[in-house]
Amino acid sequence: MRPGPIVAQALEIAVALAAAPLFLGWVNQCRAWLANRGAPSMLLPYRNIRKLFHKDAVLAENASPLFRIAPYIVFGTMVVAAGIIPSLAGRLPLVVAADAIALVGLFATARVFLSLAAMDVGTAFGTLGARREMMIGFLAEPALLMVIFVASLISATTALPAISAHLASERFTIDPSLAFIGVAFTLVLLAENARIPIDNPATHLELTMIHEAMLLEYSARHLALMEWASALRLFNYACIGFALFVPWGIAARDIGPFGLTLSIPVLALKLAAAGGGLAVIETVSAKLRIMRAPEFLASAFLFAVLGLLVHVLLGGA
């Protein structure tokens, strides 16, 4: 294999690693502006992660090895996912390893390990968080899968770069089912990244937590990895959204220096817009009661299924 693709692959992962906390910081900043608060620095997530890495890790006495290895696995899956999703370029070496379905499986792996780790110490909040996370996951995962399924039907492949390239080239045929999966995807993105209608990323009230409740027992470097992983997850979801709905500006064929240098500012632009949009959604909506969360996600799932039907009816023969 020529060195070019591998360098491009490494660059894509490096950009993801670097940009993910920044994106999170940007969303927080937008939220603060919209709420008329003084905004924290966009670099705050970096400082947090750095601070946490320097601290001593405190483990619960009855934590098992699973608890210690889980942050690395969760972080690892998110990094691999970042390598698969075409954020800067298509046709990268890792892309043949996993298509979009495998990507959903990768997210599921992270979720399962996160939940298992949360159950490991055996505190009330840990198991509560794990249960809620799995509840959200079991509806969000098929919804995401159906979103990808519809996109795959449109472009006759499940490889994400190929889907993205197809959608970018054939955009003059408006496929109405994209509207449905767009709605479904937005709902899934909010739920899977512990954003506001489902979970409040800034909450410190244990009873309403989902994601944070699972991390209660983590500290120091483990927590840093978990935080970084969740920032990466948000970034990854945003990039999946770009690949499906705004697929322009990804270096599909040209993965030389020129193509990549062009696609980085495009990505930055998309991220800035997406972060602003996310902040608006979070600001205007109120957190749902946890009992309403399944309804929210069932809607996402059913919207995606509806997209499938509409595609077969209208996009088809």
């Binding site: 009855n62 599921a108 995962e141 799932f301 499938l308």
Partner: peptide, 26 residues
């Protein structure tokens, strides 16, 4: 396919419950 996807995700739920309750925790 939607049903299969739902079942696959629910299987994850079931397995976390199975493993978590038997082997993890106190």
């Amino acid at each position: 396919a939607a049903v299969v996807a739902l079942c696959a995700a629910l299987a994850g739920y079931v397995m976390v419950k199975f493993y978590g309750v038997i082997f993890l925790g106190q």
